[in-house]
Nucleic acid binder design. Structure first.
Length: 106
DNA sequence: CGCAGGGCCCAAG
DNA sequence: TCTTGGGCCCTGC
């Protein structure tokens, strides 16, 4: 298509996303930046939105810069992401995402 | 061609 | 911690 840069951007995003190891997380902005398109955070969100349910990409490891899940708590997207993250050692502390390294801080 | 909106980001209060 | 307000880029109507 005409949007080659964007097309590459998408590919990069998906690639990077697939390379994210368990226990790691990345912000939309960071992801976009690594993809070579700093400032395209919103587009990353659009891509996530477009992801199929059967995707094997760890989209749940993508969070916002505030280190929070960008969904409202009453949405199933939030719940799904939360579950996956918790399985990988993440914990929700006051709406904030925190990595549980062996033991939660105090 | 303009406008609203999105899994955003950042700074203030 | 939450709410505003500005800016970021792209898509859809």
């Amino acid at each position: 298509m005409a949007n080659q840069p964007i097309d590459r951007f998408k590919s990069q995003v998906f690639h990077i996303l697939s390379e994210i190891p368990k226990g790691e997380c990345i912000a939309y902005g960071e992801l976009a930046k690594l993809a070579g398109f700093p400032g395209y955070a919103r587009q990353v969100g659009s891509l996530m939105k477009n992801l199929p349910k059967d995707t094997k990409l760890p989209w749940h490891r993508v969070i916002n810069a505030q280190r929070r899940i960008s969904f409202a708590e009453n949405t199933d997207g939030y719940l799904r992401q939360k579950e996956k993250l918790e399985k990988e050692g993440w914990v929700i502390v006051g709406s904030k995402l925190t990595f549980n390294e062996n033991s939660i801080k105090k």
